[in-house]
Nucleic acid binder design. Sequence first.
DNA 1: ATCGATTTTAATCCCGCTTTAATGCCCGCC
DNA 2: GGCGGGCATTAAAGCGGGATTAAAATCGAT
Lengths: 226, 226
Amino acid sequence: MKILVIEDEVKVGAFIKRGLEEHHHQVDVYTDGMKGQQAALEQDYDLILLDLMLPGINGTTVCRNLRALEIPVPILMLTALNATQDIVEGLNAGADDYLAKPFHFSELIARINALSRRKSHFHQEQAVLTFADLQLNTHTKTASREGQEIVLTAKEYALLELLLRNTGKVLSRALISEAVWGLEFDTGTNTIDVYVNYLRNKIEKGFTGEKLIHTVVGMGYVMKQK
Amino acid sequence: MKILVIEDEVKVGAFIKRGLEEHHHQVDVYTDGMKGQQAALEQDYDLILLDLMLPGINGTTVCRNLRALEIPVPILMLTALNATQDIVEGLNAGADDYLAKPFHFSELIARINALSRRKSHFHQEQAVLTFADLQLNTHTKTASREGQEIVLTAKEYALLELLLRNTGKVLSRALISEAVWGLEFDTGTNTIDVYVNYLRNKIEKGFTGEKLIHTVVGMGYVMKQK
DNA sequence: ATCGATTTTAATCCCGCTTTAATGCCCGCC
DNA sequence: GGCGGGCATTAAAGCGGGATTAAAATCGAT
């Protein structure tokens, strides 16, 4: 598993890293809350170990931020012994479990296993939508093709996600309109067409891969190959 | 779920009713085929349990009638053991599954669950319309015959879908005009004829399969075999 | 409040779907 | 046999849907 550790005490962080690596996990350690949060957003971690007592930004805040951005990674809090108030706060902020310091390493391993099992069962929404050589990360809200990262605006992303969740199906403008813009949007303008054009420019123009968004005249648009 | 039971043997009916009610379903029992059919039309059932051996009207007939009236409720037939002929007839009449008497109650429950799941998920609406060896996929908006994909324009697709949803019925030009083009289209031109010709070229010409779109002089067009 | 980015509107161009219309064919009827 | 009605077939005209572009309006951050 790929694990992110956010822990300001360098020794403790190193200790955890070493121990987890012995269990064949890949571990990144950040001592700074903001840097850690950034990493959580940019990379695709399977688990986050989060110390609540951090300099600068509070661990609870990091947790709340990640959940607000709908990052569903399991979060295991590390707290001082008997910090009942912190524990309650942390769980309310969206953490999945906690562990009081100091702890036995075997207990940490046990909780990590339990958590990842629990999460992988419950929350198995596909994080990365893939079609042909195009990928869309629903966490980072970015696409990529041929290793190139593609930055999208909100509407572009929503439209691309809709197309990718319905590959092969012809989607009518009415359906697209409702899904991306919300009910009763059609005011005789061609907004959808313009956005399809934007998307094509971003995910097709400049790439050697084939055309993916196809127009079906009089019917709508499809995401398909060939 | 709201379940309709049509079963002439009073004891069997009562037995089923009691058992289903223990599983928190709401059950109506009719011992008469005609009365049962009437109830099916008037009320909104989630499932129909239909005995094939009924006094007066045949269970198969009830089934066929309901399907002819486009009542899409899942129908589970109850048949005598080894009544293979009945089973085939029943399924052809539009039933979704069958259960041979006598049966274990747990099997009945299992089949009811499977059926309701299948219907609610899949049945959304039939995605692929099939007639003879011709298929029309309403998602991809393409037809296929003998494994060959056939690309259609918007009007061609609308016309073909109309014909396939009314196989066997003769459709007047007025009706076609209204369904495909919208009200009051007829302005003395022969657009419909031209499109029927386009369709014939695409789905009949070049295929070994038989003719499917037939002209009824003075009346309109039908999709049928023979 | 200001500036940049995003979203929406609007105008123009072009391809090919849609429609029209002319011709050919089959059949029944005078 | 000639004629006309109903449909099939074909080709050409027109028109509308969609691509593209740019400008206007709106949003959001500082």
